[in-house]
Simulated assay, not measured.
Amino acid sequence: MTDALPLSLDQADPKDRAMTRAMLYRMVMPDHLCPFGQKSKWLLEHEGYEVEDHHLTTRAQTDAFMEKHGVETTPQTFIEGERIGGYDDLRAFFGDAVKGEDETSYRPVIAIFGTGFLMALAVMWLAGLPLVSLETFTTFVAISMVLLGIQKLQDVESFSTMFLNYDLLARQWVPYGYIYPYGETLAGLLMIAGVLPWLSGPLALFIGAVGAVSVFKAVYIDKRELKCACVGGGSNVPLGFVSLTENLMMLGMGIWTLAQVAL
């Protein structure tokens, strides 16, 4: 396959344009197969383009290509002689908006809560219990607590830093930000197992109450626009109603668990 430079739009053969041909330059080396190059190739083919797939098989070849075209990264896509750019540029070219690093999204919490609910249904099904019941909801909340705790435990340091932006107790006592993920996960696990309610109930009640007050103050009183640490310190989830709901669910589970002990 030739590595000739792509023609400009004016020089491109009309016949080639009719065939919607694209030229892709990507790294395909013995020790590295560029994932964004693979994605670019798939996207082009998915959009109906005939792809001239040019492999950059050495570091020297890749550096020479980037210097020649004045670019700093590969892959690079050319359509009808015009350079489109890398994978994100290609997505934008096809009308797929690419979120920036600072843009917020509820996708992580939707994924966690959705998965937690399906897991709760699976548990109810396995146990032979009604799918629509109070037990399903309480199991869903407990599972969601564990899933959220796992996200925080992946990088406790990062979580505690973001948590300090709004949690009232962590601001007064920094170690609370490090303890929180373990407490949330432990409470959820104990509730799923149905053991030690005298521990899981007060733990969830305390965590949920402090969290709810902290989020309410930061969002609805102080009117601050912050990111929530609910799915870890590197998340782009906005602090707001969803975060408040998470804490209210834990608060409610704590009250429910203690009520069951009292009965």
Rank of each mutant, 00 (worst) to 15 (best):
D63I: 14
R59E: 06
P108H: 05
F206K: 12
K227S: 08
L169H: 10
I192A: 09
F78D: 02
V242H: 01
E80I: 13
D16C: 14
D31P: 07
F241E: 11
T73M: 12
R171T: 06
M66P: 13
E82Q: 09
G233R: 05
P14Q: 11
L153G: 03
V156E: 03
M1A: 14
L129M: 15
L56E: 01
Q61H: 09
A122C: 08
L134D: 09
H54S: 06
G232C: 02
A22Q: 02
I179Y: 12
R17M: 12
T2M: 06
S133T: 04
H69A: 08
W125I: 06
P75N: 09
S105W: 00
L121S: 02
T136W: 00
E47F: 05
F36S: 08
T136R: 10
R21G: 03
A212R: 04
D10P: 10
E225Y: 01
F206S: 09
D10A: 15
E135S: 15
Q151H: 10
L239Y: 00
L239N: 03
V28E: 01
F113L: 13
A60I: 12
G208M: 09
E225N: 10
R59C: 10
E50T: 14
N247S: 05
E157N: 07
D96E: 13
A193R: 05
P35W: 01
M145N: 14
T245I: 15
A209M: 14
Q151L: 08
L168M: 10
S144K: 09
L153S: 03
A60H: 04
Y182D: 02
A209Y: 04
G211H: 05
T139C: 12
L258W: 09
M29N: 05
Q172C: 07
I207L: 15
G233S: 00
G232P: 05
G37Y: 03
F65Y: 11
L118A: 11
K152P: 05
G149M: 03
P238K: 01
A212N: 06
H69G: 09
L129T: 14
A92D: 10
A97W: 01
G254K: 12
H32G: 05
G177E: 01
R26I: 04
V146E: 02
L7G: 11
W256Y: 15
V231Q: 01
D10I: 14
T62H: 02
A142Q: 06
L196P: 07
M162K: 13
